[in-house]
Amino acid sequence: MPDVRPPAKSRPVPALPAACGVGFKPQHFEAILADAAGVAFFEVHAENYFGAGGPPHRRLTALRERFPLSIHGVGLSIGGAGPLDRDHLVRLAALVARYEPEAVSEHLAWSSHGGFGFPDLLPLPLTEETLGRVVEHVDETQAVLGREILLENPSTYFRFAESTVPEVEFLAEVARRTGCGLLLDVANVDVSATNHGFDPRAYLAAFPIERVSEIHLAGRFETVDDAGLPFFVDSHDGPVADPVWTLYRETIARIGPVPTLIERDDAIPAWEVLAAEAGRAEAVLATARARRGGERDAA
């Protein structure tokens, strides 16, 4: 790949461990400090820490002293048609500078337009035009942060008639042109595959695995659309579904261990429940690590 541009001012950042992490929720803070055995890192939503100080930052500081950290933005609107919100970007940069996380990620989505903000990850048509715009926005973000970000594949509920670029090609091209990494949300792949009627295994086989430095797993809400077709909503409010575990196991068996996050953003259960779910992913990763070790020993 001849024209991969490294992000400006890039400096080496330690990677997340190739083990399982959990999305941090404040109500779990005490339980985590008491016992987070088997959980290798934590991830937080950047925007929850855009305040100046107080208990959110006190907790994050304590967490960061003990664990590798991933900062996951949910509001930069990288897929937006307009320019990036510089205030938002500067606050994200300040947060990243303050905590020096092992990973920083954002979404292929938009969440503000024309002076209105939407607390959602909204879909965009995939065209040469939007590809160019997303590349500009990722370049700008990486320049301001001074480091590489990971871009996450979306979960989508419908397609756009004007889309011309397949999603996997779109993400691969953004990564190629900007030097960014990718965050592969396996649950999103299964949600989108169901909603659009494609084969999730074909999507995963085509995904530019060499760019993936984190995986997300989350629960979804299963319903039907107006025509009675199966329709999944990326709700993050329950355990990871069995078909997603199957896709995850197959993916890890193929590509080896990758830092993996259990996401739960609604109907938050007791810490033990999430830690047990992380244990399930950790078992998959441990198998892959052992096999990799075995291959090394045999070589």
């Binding site: 939407f118 959602d120 909204l122 509920y157 419908f158 397609r159 756009f160 008639a161 004007e162 909603n195 659009h196 009627g197 319903t223 039907v224 659309d225 107006d226 025509a227 077709l229 329709f231 909503v233």
Partner: peptide, 17 residues
């Protein structure tokens, strides 16, 4: 210009957003 498989209606799908 929002499409569901088979060209069906997308009302419930858009309603999620």
């Amino acid at each position: 210009g929002l499409l569901a498989p088979g060209g069906g209606p997308v009302g419930r799908r858009f309603a999620v957003h």
